[in-house]
Design a protein around this nucleic acid. Structure first.
Length: 570
RNA sequence: CGGGGCGUGGCGCAGCCUGGUAGCGCACCUGCCUUGGGCGCAGGGGGUCGCAGGUUCGAAUCCUGCCGCCCCGACCA
């Protein structure tokens, strides 16, 4: 295509609202424009790139026998009431009414609609297994859209759903998706890690997330430096670093001591001269309206996700100060488990076997020393602690690190959640009616583009992988008024097209500097520069990412480049 | 929802405190010039100063309310 005819509104300066790199560059590169908070228009370049991503996704999904469909974005409320998610989704769901006051919503995901189709049509085990997918716009009324395309209220998702007769079938569908996702992200040129994840409100047993390392990301991933263990921080387990010092020996009795004005773990550590790891941290949480006392080692943090999993609660929140006063007769900062009988006490496993620790006395301004779990109070032990950077790996003992990531894909074993609540059953070979087991699998299409920009950019702009860049090569005559250069460039462009390359011809009447800056900004992976060296029959092939430049004979340039691009796309 | 910041030509910003002509750089248009990293010169077009109300002879500027956007937190599939 001829650049002079295209709408590629590049910006010299970064719009003030863009803080993360991918947002700033997609805006500057003329890929996207914002319409409202978390709502973006995808202009020509973005659309081209997204179409390439979607094509890769389609090829790989089709490759595992998945069948593409296209479902409505507008859903009746009753369907969501059947699965119970009309209420669960809360304010995150866009809701509306039609002219007859019937309630509707905009689809956040499509388990309900897919299950609706399945239950209407699937009758026999002979029709299983099935994998259905679509690429569709999803709507989520995020409390805080942010970071350009990374967290938005309307976005494209490839979502697929598997239907199987039993757990072995689900395992197979899950594995197929796992492999297909790896191929998709490989082909898109991303570096990513696959982590064990928490299945959250989707329900279900097992899940993995596909994560791309990026400072702009919001998900924390724990990664082992020694083995291949990796998990979402919400779910990760580890061996904690040992306490700073040994516990005092002996069968000591709890003893109250004054700690005037000292409330935090750090203040008590400072006051007693003992490490934070010698204290019991007491947190009062409210799980579905019921209080629970959570105990952790002083230097550890609570994983609310783990607590939620342990309690089975749908909503977890810290107790309000007045609730704490009512239940404990003291304020946060002086709380402890000794003598607590009016609520369940859950303790993190790191407290098991510890002796003579310090905790609050449930009396303002006082703490207890010599408190020993299982002797001075009873608790139920669970893994409740959030892994910290520097913990050791539970499987190999090496050091764990915590990194920030962007989630680009997520696969879930749903189990029977939707088939049971919505009545999706088939007859088995021996005539029994059984619910179908399901899986669901998602990819955030725009996030692939954003993550690629986060991963591959420099001070001049993006350096996109060839497979997903809006064009594979840009042909840049340095001086358009030079007839030789112009005709050589036109010839190269024609040959690129003939060779099947996705080429952009920068025929604009601009100075070379402008063309180079723009090409760098929008991230086209290769550039053929037609300039002075043409006199000697040569043109330059420049690789965007490495900035390496090679002089190649005009006649060989296209074949040479076509081979390079073929390799880059694998 | 809590905290903070910001709304002035397409983009980046100044002007506001101390009320009186709306300004700068980039971009855009025309002409000349230039042609290997966002050239140069000359001329030109474009702004309800987020919205509404109030104070005032007079409001971008002061006051009140609202709206929008960004960031931090809460939340999150």
């Amino acid at each position: 295509m001829y650049w002079s005819k295209l709408f590629i509104p590049t910006l010299r300066e970064t719009p003030a609202e863009a803080e993360v790199v991918s947002h700033a560059l997609l805006l500057r590169g003329g890929y996207i424009r914002q319409l409202a908070a978390g709502i973006y228009s995808y202009l020509f370049l973005a659309q081209r790139s997204l179409l390439k991503i979607m094509r890769i996704i389609r090829e790989e999904m089709d490759g595992i026998g998945a069948q593409e469909m296209f479902l409505p974005a507008l859903h009746p409320a009753d369907l969501w009431r059947e699965s119970g998610r009309w209420d669960v989704m809360g304010d995150n769901m866009f809701r509306l009414k039609d002219r007859f006051e019937r309630e509707l919503c905009l689809g956040m995901t499509h388990e309900e609609v897919m299950t609706h189709i399945a239950r209407g049509e699937l009758r026999s085990y002979k029709q299983l297994p099935q994998i259905w997918y679509q690429i569709q716009t999803k709507f989520r009324d995020e409390p805080r859209p942010k970071s350009g395309l990374l967290r938005v209220r309307q976005f494209l998702m490839k979502d697929s759903y598997s239907f199987d007769l039993g757990p072995e079938g689900l395992d197979a569908a899950y594995e197929k998706h796992y492999q297909a996702y790896c191929r998709i992200f490989d082909r898109c040129g991303l570096e990513y890690i696959v982590v064990e994840a928490h299945s959250g409100a989707m329900g279900g047993s097992q899940s993995h997330e596909f994560m791309v390392k990026a400072d702009a990301g919001e998900d924390y991933v724990v990664q082992c430096t020694g083995c291949d263990y990796a998990a979402n921080l919400e779910k990760a387990a580890s061996k904690p670093v040992p306490p700073r010092g040994p516990d005092p020996e002996g069968d000591l009795e709890p003893e109250k001591f004054p700690t005037p004005g000292r409330k935090t773990i750090a203040e008590i550590a400072d006051f007693t001269g003992l490490p934070e790891s010698s204290q019991i941290k007491s947190l009062v949480m409210v799980a579905d309206g019921k209080p629970v006392l959570v105990l952790l080692r002083g230097d550890h943090a609570l994983s609310e996700t783990k607590l939620q999993a342990v309690t089975g609660a749908t909503e977890i929140r810290p107790a309000h100060p007045d609730e704490i006063r009512e239940w404990f007769g003291a304020d946060a900062g002086s709380l402890g488990p000794v003598g607590v009988t009016n609520m369940p006490v859950l303790a993190d496993e790191a407290l098991k076997g510890r002796r003579n620790m310090i905790c609050g006395a449930n009396e303002d301004g006082y703490h207890l020393r010599h408190v020993t779990p299982d002797e001075d109070f009873q608790a139920e032990y669970h893994d409740l602690r959030e892994v910290a950077d520097g913990d050791t790996c539970a499987s190999c003992g090496a050091r764990l690190g915590v990194i920030k990531t962007v989630e680009v894909g997520h696969i879930f074993k749903l189990g029977y959640k939707y088939s049971e609540s919505m009545g999706l059953k088939v007859l088995t070979e021996d005539g029994k009616e059984i619910p179908v087991i399901m899986g669901s699998y998602g990819i955030g299409v725009e996030r692939i583009l954003s993550a690629a920009v986060e991963l591959y950019h420099d001070e001049d702009g993006m350096a996109l992988p060839a497979a997903i860049a809006p064009f594979e090569v840009v042909i840049t005559p340095v001086n358009k008024s030079n007839d030789d250069q112009r005709s050589a460039a036109e010839q190269l462009y024609a040959r690129c097209k003939a060779a099947g390359l996705d080429a952009l011809y920068d025929d604009r009447d601009e100075r070379a500097g402008v063309k180079f800056k723009d090409a760098d900004l929008i991230g086209i992976p290769y550039r053929i520069t037609v300039g002075k060296k043409l006199a000697g029959g040569k043109v330059e092939i420049v690789e965007r990412r490495t900035r390496q430049s090679e002089d190649v004979a005009l006649s060989e340039a296209v074949d040479y480049l076509a081979e390079k691009i073929r390799q880059a796309k694998q």
